[in-house]
């Protein structure tokens, strides 16, 4: 099975901290390949090689995880 699904999530720098995003990537790295870039007021998290079993929910779950990280860190 090919494993080439991908996506981009834009996190506003004034709302989401880089620390929370990076630690969330560490927690999700077994489910996809992550790359983080900066563009203007946003951090761009680029997902590729997403595990097909989680491709429908990974972005939403990742968003929630980052939000929880902000609250608990």
């Amino acid at each position: 099975m090919k494993n080439n699904t991908h996506g981009v999530i834009k996190f506003n720098k004034n709302i989401y901290s880089e620390k929370a995003i990076v630690s969330s990537i560490a927690a999700f790295k077994h489910l996809a390949h992550f790359d983080i870039q900066q563009k203007g007021d946003y951090y761009l998290v680029i997902l590729s090689k997403i595990n097909p079993q989680v491709k429908d929910v990974i972005k939403d779950e990742f968003n929630n995880y980052v939000l929880a990280k902000i609250k608990t860190d």
Binding site: N12, N14, I15, D60, E61, N63, N64, L67, A68, K71
Partner: peptide, 23 residues
């Protein structure tokens, strides 16, 4: 807003965005 969103992450997927600098 963070605290409220955190309380709802078991029921829904939440995403925050903002306008303006500062927000």
């Amino acid at each position: 807003i963070y605290n409220t969103a955190y309380n709802f992450i078991d029921q829904a997927y939440l995403f925050l965005d903002g306008k303006g600098e500062p927000i």
